[in-house]
């Protein structure tokens, strides 16, 4: 059979044909998988993540296909694999952190603790996520500095995502004088919260006397707002409460101390 006649070494037209077929199958499989990832993954992954994942799939399938094809075209992969293994070992030792960042990047794609545009805190840095790369994550801090955080650090450290949930709670503690009417103060604060559109009806705000402190009666105010808006509200409402409380005669006291003397104290008062 001419199909099984050796062309050179053990390589026949049949084995070459199979090699071509395997390459074709590998190409078709990667196309199908990457197209489906692009189609179905766009709701859950960013475009960058999809591109990155597709590159990995292309590379993985290509490596497997080459390993299968090599013996079919007369190249013994054993030697290559041993050499490759040694090189991989050397590179592996030399680039532990690179591999660690890479693997962490892949896990972050799967776990998705944040997405581009989220406000997060990583390693003490608070900022907006600008880029989620395979090796590192870039955040723009609130004072406009770009910070590149290696993915290994992102993966192993605590990440706080301030906008992962639709809403978030924030609070104030407002101290008033013992002489003031706490019920009236609570009523004024509640009316401010009721007038503010973005302080949510549900979950409901809570305003109550929290503590009878040394110098003041402390009122705790717990409010919920959309995660995208809470910071602006946080800046705005505290001073509004102070102003309206003072307008209603409710004062925010200074620390004060009463001194009692056991014996009479002589005082000289100078007039004029």
């Amino acid at each position: 059979m001419w199909l099984t006649d050796p062309l050179y070494g053990n390589v026949t037209i049949l084995s070459l044909g199979i090699a071509v077929l395997i390459a074709l199958i590998a190409f078709i499989v990667t196309r199908i998988v990457t197209l489906n990832i692009r189609r179905f993954g766009k709701e859950k992954l960013s475009m960058d993540q999809i591109k990155m994942l597709n590159k990995f799939i292309n590379l993985g399938v290509a490596v497997v296909a080459v390993i299968i094809i090599l013996p079919l075209v007369g190249i013994d992969p054993t030697g290559l694999m041993v050499a490759g293994g040694i090189i991989a070992l050397v590179i592996g030792f030399a680039s532990q952190s690179i591999v660690s960042n890479l693997i962490s990047g892949l896990f972050l794609i799967v776990e998705k603790p944040m997405k581009i545009g989220d406000v997060v805190q990583i390693e003490g840095e608070v900022g907006v996520v600008e880029n989620l790369g395979i090796m590192s994550t870039v955040i723009r801090t609130l004072d406009g500095v770009s910070v590149r955080v290696p993915n290994e650090k992102v993966f192993t450290n605590k990440v706080s995502n301030y906008v992962a949930n639709k809403v978030r709670r924030f609070e104030y503690v407002i101290g008033i004088r013992y002489a003031d009417d706490a019920d009236k103060a609570v009523e004024i604060i509640n009316s401010i919260l009721a007038r503010e559109p973005l302080i949510l009806v549900n979950p409901a705000s809570e305003v109550y006397v929290k503590e009878l402190a040394d110098n003041s009666v402390n009122i705790r105010v717990l409010m919920w707002a959309p995660s995208t808006e809470w910071w602006n509200l946080n800046k705005k409402l505290l001073y509004k409460m102070k102003t309206e409380l003072e307008n209603a005669g409710v004062q925010i006291p200074f620390p004060q101390r009463e001194l009692w003397f056991n014996s009479e104290v002589e005082a000289k008062v100078k007039q004029g």
Partner: peptide, 12 residues
């Protein structure tokens, strides 16, 4: 405004 549902999956 208000939240319908839970903070993670609800809607404003």
């Amino acid at each position: 405004y208000t939240l319908y549902g839970n903070p993670k999956t609800g809607v404003i």
